[in-house]
């Protein structure tokens, strides 16, 4: 089979998208900046959702009533991630990262976050964890840096 040539063409286009986060996530990010985790309540099923959004899909109701959640919770599920995806390339991480699903006290959904302060070999579900914020917060999701075991 003849192998045909490949033509490469550099396309100097930059796709820049300016995504608006909307009212609810905006408030959540403000909360993170002041080192608080905010959830929102569905008036019908009374679930407290983190991250917050405008609608509860279960009840098709507009969510109302903000709650400030305690920054502590339980690790319900986790994976030890050895790779990260960069522009579609699967690259090895320098060291494995624990990505956990955390049930915050008072919340009904699980929050996905990094877990530190415990080795991948020792981490277990059921672990009590607390939120650790960056020292200087900027109103981004990265303000909530990770969770670590409650001592």
């Amino acid at each position: 089979m003849a192998e045909h040539k490949i033509v490469n063409s550099f396309v100097g286009l930059q796709f820049i998208y300016n995504y608006r986060v909307g009212e609810y996530l905006d408030k959540y990010l403000d909360g993170l900046q002041s080192k608080k985790i905010l959830g929102i309540t569905c008036p019908e099923c009374e679930r407290v959702l983190v991250p917050p959004r405008s609608m509860c899909g279960k009840c098709n109701a507009k969510t109302k009533k903000w709650v400030t959640l305690k920054p502590v919770g339980t690790l319900k599920n986790f994976t030890i991630s050895h790779v990260e995806i960069e522009q579609g390339e699967i690259k090895d991480r320098e060291k494995p990262v624990i990505i956990g699903q955390i049930k915050l006290e008072g919340a009904d959904s699980l929050l996905t976050a990094k877990i530190e302060g415990v080795s991948p070999k020792e981490v277990k579900t059921g672990l009590k964890v607390k939120a650790v914020f960056k020292d200087t917060t900027e109103g981004t999701l990265q303000d909530l840096d990770h969770f670590e075991p409650v001592k």
Partner: peptide, 26 residues
């Protein structure tokens, strides 16, 4: 420009408005 809403929030009122004009429930 709708800097006040994100994409789902832009669409949701259209859904609500359509349903409002009927005897339908979700």
């Amino acid at each position: 420009k709708r800097p006040d809403v994100n994409i789902p929030e832009l669409i949701q009122p259209a859904v609500a408005n359509a349903i409002k004009k009927t005897k339908l429930k979700y």
